[in-house]
Amino acid sequence: MKIVCCVKYVPDATADRKFAADHTVDRVGVDGVLSELDEYAVEEALQIREGADDCEIIVVTVGPEPARAAILKSLQMGADAGVHVVDEAIHGSDAVGTSLVLAKAVERQQADLVLCGMASTDGSMSVVPAMLAERLGLAQLTFGTEVAVDGTTVRVRRDDDAASEIIEATLPVLISVTDQANEPRYPSFKGIMAAKKKPVQTLTLADLGIDSSEVGTEAAWTKVEEMRARPPRSAGTIVAADDGAGAERLVEFLASQKFI
């Protein structure tokens, strides 16, 4: 079996986020990491491989030069090889453009199973897996909280507030998993050393047969006109409680704000 895992390199959520002059996220000048939500996809792939004979895991990412770190982390965790699509012209692509690049890169792998995280931790669109499945013509089992592969049958549980549903499809399929699906492992030190010897292929838009006019800021369906940092939180309202009437005042406050 061949599994392709799509991963993204995102700014470290614990550090300050910066934006470039064109309102895109600064991915070069800040510390980046493998998107935490994609770690669940990598872990799921590794667990599927543990239960299968002869299974290969290829990690695919689209992003500038430093994005290679997201591939490296996945290889350290245990994936077998990486594909890194780097091209200046991709800068500023929206989900539609990104899914096109990913689709062309994934298509070449002839994978049985494509795994994605449920969303990126920076853009948080969560539409790329669905768009990618559509472009690849694959059944899509998204937001999986539990994945079981039995031969060519794939079963995925989806949980929502009201009910859980089990959906099933036959390979090849695309699955996206949530942060409930598993507990991603830390790379082992042996994994770190082994990762250095694993192959990573670098591709450009031309390699994938994509015209640069199809992607990037200009081709995006939406445009960020303006952006502002969130204003600092203002001081809250203090409800005095020392005279015994605090609860009453708290209820009044909550009611006045229509919280209750």
Partner: peptide
């Protein structure tokens, strides 16, 4: 070595 830097990154994460 470069793997020692990666090792220390892993250790700091843990």
């Amino acid at each position: 070595t470069s793997e020692a830097y990666d090792l220390l990154d892993l250790v700091r994460d843990i």
